[in-house]
Amino acid sequence: MKKFLKIFSVLLLICSSNTFSFAAEKVDYLKTDWSFKGLFGKFDRASLQRGYQVYTEVCASCHSMKYLSYRNLAEKGGPEFPEDQAKAIAASFEVMDGPNADGEMFARPGKLSDKFVMPYDNVKAAQAANGGAYPPDMSVLVKARGGGVDYVYSLLQGYEEAPSGMILDDGVHYNKYMYGNKIRMAAPLSDGLVEYGDGTAATVEQMSKDVTTFLMWAAEPHLEARHQMGFKAIIYLIILTILVYFSMKKIWSRVESEV
């Protein structure tokens, strides 16, 4: 039993360390204390709401978030805007609907059940407006990048002067965390770009943290439920394992053998 556990854990360690080492490429990302990490990790509600503000006022002019609906903003485990506020947010967007009884398409104010309105009609339009580069959809963006939240958080703060000798084409910017260091997106954030309703100072660092938190929630809307259920499930399994262990000892005590 002891030998088994020893070998098993060593094997597991080797396997997992392998996965970790190539899951994230060796880059020193900027670190911050994410409230949603760890066994009991939860989102910081205020940060999510501020993050939504940054998204909608800054990012959303180019980046879509097509898998989210306005109702998600009021749901448990998210920014948890009061339902009235979420309704007001939805209504502030114009949604194309139809065809109506006359066969015409028409614009109407958004409803909770609508998906987030996209900034461009299609990929071609988005590329045309952004010098040929397509601003990626942000619904699962943090899960679609190797470094996850740390990468996005760093990237937003990683704009610098290009090192001498590096020639950048028109409309290309230097970012020390971007793969290949060249990025089409101009530095999106600057101090005081948005005005937070709760009085938090809108520094680039603060906005980066808030919007990345918001993106994490957008990618994993059930993260809080997952953490809560995981803790209960594992405690349950551990208790059951202990009970079964003693039952096993009792049953095997009838035969002359180790277990």
Partner: peptide, 14 residues
């Protein structure tokens, strides 16, 4: 359970 609840995407590719 640890994989499912606490690092569900660690074994996949971003």
């Amino acid at each position: 359970a640890f994989f499912v609840f606490y690092s569900p995407n660690i074994l996949g590719h971003a």
